[in-house]
Simulated assay, not measured.
Amino acid sequence: MGKWYVRVGIYFLCTFLLNANAQAAFQLRNVDVQKMANSIVALMSYSAIPDLASSSLSINNAQTGNPSIAMTQFGGGFTISKTTPLYLEGAAAYSRYDPKFIATDGTQERSVPLKWNSGTVQGGVGWDFEIYRRWVIRPIFNFSFSMLFSDTEIGAALIADYKDLENIDFLDNGNVSIGGLGSALMLAYEFHDDVIGTDVDLQLRYSYIHLQSMGGSRSISGHSDSSTANVYYRFRAPMGDLRVLGEPFRYVLETSASQYFGDQVGVLGFHYLATAGLGIELDSSGYDVWVTRTRLVGRYMFGDNVSGYSVGLACSF
């Protein structure tokens, strides 16, 4: 039978080890929550800075379980008139980010899926200074506001299984408000040939914005300083003698390239993006309607380790 106190000691030792293992908290593996929070805010830079190139992306990242990300942005800008060269711009964006994290207690691992959604509104006020015929330089003051939140339905379903998971608050019903202030400098060229009917638009822009979280989940508290340099070119010309609505029917050629700096660099695995687009334009200026031109353009996007495509609809007023 052995000595009774040896058996009692073994019993209490086994009980202690079992309780210690049962109470071990699940933790996210290889995740620095503060670094993740700053990266989340840096991710919002793609929506807070007007940029044609970041409208569609295809991304793989093994550290977060090959997540998918979708970004949609629409907006525009205009100068009021030659006599009042006040420039106004605005944009709205939506993005969805679907990463997966691995939680472990040292003996077992569990996959923690997550879906983040964000909405962003952005605005800018500038002034045109003509430096040469058809050339203007345009300083712009920018501001933005974003809301980022996780899918609460998914979080609620996971809490029962991951009740011991540390830093769960940024996964379960996580949300944060993000404000931004920045500026931009643009060099713009516009040419219109009334005889042939061709149009040329060229823009070179450098944008900077500081984003700061302003409330929400305790774990999601971050900031970022990001900037983007981009060039945009568009050429429009009639398709021979073809006319629609009494006006020339045009084809559209577009290209753009964007280089990212600051905290924005590498947050999604790339440093630059470029696009090439082809489309058509319908001229309705001969009718008493607000929309004078409507453009439908298909674009292909590419960069280091990423590629994508988009279809854009644009209107002139």
Rank of each mutant, 00 (worst) to 15 (best):
Gln264Val: 02
Ala48Leu: 00
Ala91Thr: 02
Asp201Ala: 12
Arg295Glu: 15
Asn117Ala: 06
Ile154Asn: 11
Leu17Cys: 10
Ser316Ala: 09
Gly222Ile: 14
Tyr300Ser: 02
Met1Lys: 11
Gly124Asn: 00
Arg293Phe: 10
Ile59Lys: 14
Trp127Asn: 01
Leu17Val: 13
Val6Pro: 02
Ile168Val: 07
Pro139Lys: 05
Met44Leu: 12
Val252Met: 04
Leu114Pro: 00
Tyr300Gly: 08
Ile102His: 03
Leu171Cys: 06
Leu86Lys: 06
Thr79Gly: 08
Ser177Arg: 10
Tyr87Arg: 14
Gly65Ala: 05
Tyr11Ile: 09
Ile137Cys: 00
Gly262Gln: 08
Ser55Ile: 11
Ala184Gln: 10
Asp241Arg: 12
Lys35Gly: 15
Val306Ser: 08
Tyr232Asp: 15
Arg133Ser: 12
Gln264His: 01
Leu13Gly: 08
Val6Ser: 07
Ile140Cys: 04
Phe12Tyr: 14
Thr79Val: 12
Asp194Gly: 09
Glu281Asp: 08
Asp283Val: 09
Arg243Asn: 11
Asp304Tyr: 08
Met36Asp: 03
Gly215Glu: 03
Val195Trp: 06
Asn230Thr: 06
Thr104Arg: 04
Asn305Ala: 13
Arg236Pro: 04
Ala188Arg: 14
Leu114Thr: 08
Asp164Ile: 05
Glu190Ile: 05
Val311Thr: 15
Ile140His: 00
Gly65His: 09
Ser81His: 09
Phe143Lys: 05
Gly240Cys: 04
Gly279Tyr: 02
Ser219Gly: 03
Met36Lys: 10
Asp225Val: 07
Leu268Val: 11
Glu89Phe: 02
Thr228Arg: 03
Ile69Ala: 11
Leu114Ser: 10
